[in-house]
Structures are given as C-alpha cells and as structure tokens.
Design a protein around this nucleic acid. Sequence first.
DNA 1: CGCCACGTTGAATTCAGTCAAAGAGCGTGG
DNA 2: CCACGCTCTTTGACTGAATTCAACGTGGCG
Lengths: 267, 267
Amino acid sequence: MTDLLGQAQGADLAPLVRKLANFAPLTAEDQRILRGVGSSHESFAPGARIIGEGEVPRSVFVVTEGVACRYRDMPDGRRQIMTFLLPGDLCDMHVFLVKAMDHSIAAISPVRLAGVSRDTVLDLLFNRPRIAAALWWSSLQEEAILRERIVALGRRNAHGRIAYLLCEILWRCEAVGLELDRAVSLPLSQVDLADTLGLTPVHVNRVLKQLRNSGLIMLANRMLTVLDLPRLQAMAGFDSSYLHLGGAPEEIAEVFDQLESRARARA
Amino acid sequence: MTDLLGQAQGADLAPLVRKLANFAPLTAEDQRILRGVGSSHESFAPGARIIGEGEVPRSVFVVTEGVACRYRDMPDGRRQIMTFLLPGDLCDMHVFLVKAMDHSIAAISPVRLAGVSRDTVLDLLFNRPRIAAALWWSSLQEEAILRERIVALGRRNAHGRIAYLLCEILWRCEAVGLELDRAVSLPLSQVDLADTLGLTPVHVNRVLKQLRNSGLIMLANRMLTVLDLPRLQAMAGFDSSYLHLGGAPEEIAEVFDQLESRARARA
DNA sequence: CGCCACGTTGAATTCAGTCAAAGAGCGTGG
DNA sequence: CCACGCTCTTTGACTGAATTCAACGTGGCG
C-alpha cells in the first residue's frame, strides 16, 4: 500500500473516523490506523444489490460514498427498508457469525465501499481497545436507530414519520460531516421514503407537499434543506439523544487505560 | 458464593446457557462459568419499572424469570413497546458505553434479574472467546428481531402483525426451553400487544377473536396455545430464519481456536 | 361490596390506501 | 434534434382498515 494510496483511502474513511471519534477519545495512532483499514474497494450503481437475502456475507465493509439501505422484499412484491447506510457506516461486523443474510442491502445513490479484512477487524477488536469500544458503541447506536424507527412506525402518523426521518438523516449526516447549512443531499425517491416509513408513495407525496407549503422544508432535485428545524422536530416528537452523539461517560477512560495496558503487555 | 447458592444460580441461568449454546459450541467449562456469573438478584412486580429513560444504567443483568419489555413513553401518554426480554436475555451489555437510557424497561409479569458485574463481563469478553462470540451473536439476534419488527409494523396489517408476534414469542421461548407442546405462558395483556404492534387495544381484541374463531390459537388466562402453526406462520409471512437459531458457520471454529490460544498465552 | 384493570362489543369517524391518469425530467437512439 | 421510453412526481375521486368513542361484562382483591 503506497503512501499515496494510503492517503486516498484515508480521505475515504474520514466519515468513519469522525463518527467513531464522536464517541471515544481516539488517539492519533488509532485514527491513523483506522484510515488505513480499507483493503479493497467496490462501486455500485443506484439500485444495484450489494448483497441479497440468503447469501453468505463475504466481508466487513465501510461505506465511503453514497447511500445504501438494508431492506426486505415481501412475497407480494412490496418491500420494507429497515435502515440506511451512510458514509462512515459499517456493514456486518458480525459477518463471521451468520450463515445467511436475513435481509438484503442495495445501493440507493452511487455507492463506494471499502472492504475490511477479517484479520484486520479481529486485530482492532483485540489490540485497539478504544477502537473496539467505539465500534461497539457504533453497533449500540444502530440498535437505537432501529428502536426509534419502531416507535415512529408504531405510534406516529404520516406527518410525524416523515418529519422524524428527515430529522434523523440530518443529524446522522452532521455526525459524519456531510451536512452543510441544514442542507443535505437526499438521494431517496418518494418510493424509497414510502418503503421506509410503511406508507404509500402517493401519501408520502401529499405529506411532503404540505411540509413544503408550511415552510418547513425545501426538497427538490434530491437536495433537502430544513428551513425550520425546531418546528420539524416538534412535529416528529424528535429527540436526538437516542443517537448518543454526546459520547461515552467520563469514567470509561479508566476502563480504556486498563485494557490498553493489557494490550501492551500482550505485545 | 456457596456451592448451594451457586447451584441455585445455575438453575436460574439455564435459559441463558441454552440460548448461547444454541449458537456457539460452548465447552463444559464455558457453561460452568456462565452459570456462575450472577452476582446479585432482584425481583420486580408486574408493571414495575426496572430502569427509566434518562437514567444511567447500573449494571448488566440477565433475566432469569418472567417477561419484561423495553418501551418508550410518548408525550401524549401512549407508549410503544420495542422488544420483550425473556428468560436468558441479556440487558444492556453496552451499559458502560451510554450516559443515559434512551428508553425504559419494565416488568410485565413478575420478573427476576441476575446482575453481572462489569469485571465479569470484561473477563468473559477477553478470556472466553466462545462466550464472547456467543454474546456477540446474541446482540446480532436482537438486532435482527428489531429489524423484523420494523417489517411487521411497516408492511403487515393487524392480522399479520399479531400472528407474527405470536410466532416470534413461540420460537424464542422454544430456544430457551420454555415452550411446552406449542403452549407458552403469555403474560401480555391486550393493551401490551397493542402497544407492541402499533394498534389499539380494541382492534387487537377484535383480531384475536377472529384468530380464535378460525381455530388458529387458544388464548385465555395468559396461556397461549398455537393450534395451527403452519397457518399462523403463513398469515404472518413468518420465516424463523431471522432468529439465526441454526448457529454459526462451521469455519468459525478455527477463529475460536485461534482466539483461545491467544487467551491461553496471555494467562 | 365495590373498586379497578382487563376484555368485549357496536356505531361513527378518519387517516391512509387504492385506482387511475397525467405531467416532468432524462437519457438514448433513430 | 426530437421522439420514445423510462422513472419519478403530482393530483383527484373513491374505498377501506383501523381508530375513536362509548358502553357493558367480568374476574380478582382489599
């Protein structure tokens, strides 16, 4: 791996570093290592399936560009999107542990992935306690995102659901450095939104129109601008704390140090 | 910890052992250690809150008896149950990593918990690779359960949702040894079911009536008997593979061995 | 007994779905 | 260059699954 290549990969993995650093106090060394974990690269066109239900996951990967989604196809042809994968998101850390995917993953916009080898993952997990903790936290955050979606689908009406999803995307983009002045690129079609929120495309269309008319958002040409975030959050009953962006409690530093000295002793 | 106490705790933790052994080939030593991890015990009456949103989680614990749930209270007084905690389920492995709970946990039936100390968890994670892998798998299963609920809430009607939930509970009970002839104790009220499935209690009642009348289930006095599992699963579009009860792929044995030798070298 | 939580039933209402059609934007190939 | 085929978006009229409101039944328990 040349320096140049290393730098290029480093740039790709900046969202990952930024996301993880959000949580744990990564050392400069940790960050350097993280930027170098990508061993292969793959690109997918919009709509392309990255991995399908029933297949055996090949390796861990990180989204470096674009938006992908986890989804399930229903027997009647409909589908349900479970979650979005944004740049910096890891995919299938548990890749070693599962015989067959219970859902599919597909690209929504053009997507680039960086593969991370099994050995690299194990090395990080066992010898880089801060990174290991940050990865653990990351999976905790994913779980929280899933729980929050359950709340949205179970107890919010169409307005609340759409407002909530836009808020979540905005906050997640901000956490990885993709947000610019409350505007983000939103490559989701109205059909995608409907498949995410358990609604029909027609109804999504009508609700979006109302959100635009009431001056809450601008949404056109795959660009979303939130004009009145407080009001949008109120409509969604949105509270960003479930994303746990504040990081870990202070006391955890001692645990890190403990683990780090163990790792050093091993080396 | 006396032998007698140790045995009593061992009995309590049997569902945990059974669940984890479902996945990873635990050694006899692993199983013995697992049965001894409980360091404290607590009981909760039905409806009692175990931990509330905004609180700081105290410790990791395992459900040894009864059913609890994770839920979120909504500003308007409604609530959404996200998932159920059955015997053998772990709660808040990520306890070290989070500043404040983003949801609450409450007992549904009388619940008994075994606390597991932070040091014990770290020890298992670093020195018992098979247990560590099984715990990891367990959190993977939890995530899959959450995703499946999203599918149910987003894309199934009331009949499908209820049928799906009953199927899931039946399979999960079976996985920890709580099922008897397709009958399980189901301490959930119709209100609880409604809060889980994003429906109203009234509608749940009507649908349950239909399920009973069509000879699919018997449900009375908190006992559920599934009379026609195939038809119930068909109605739900239920496929148990998301629970990943089949265990890990064979190739993972080598990874275990590798990690175990590392752990031994350390000791 | 009387309270209270839970379960059951009916009638009216509504939010979101269905069906149908037309417009807007875009790449491609004749 | 424009016609076409395509996907995505928009709009209207009608339908329907689930909610709401309201009442009554029922069993356990202090």
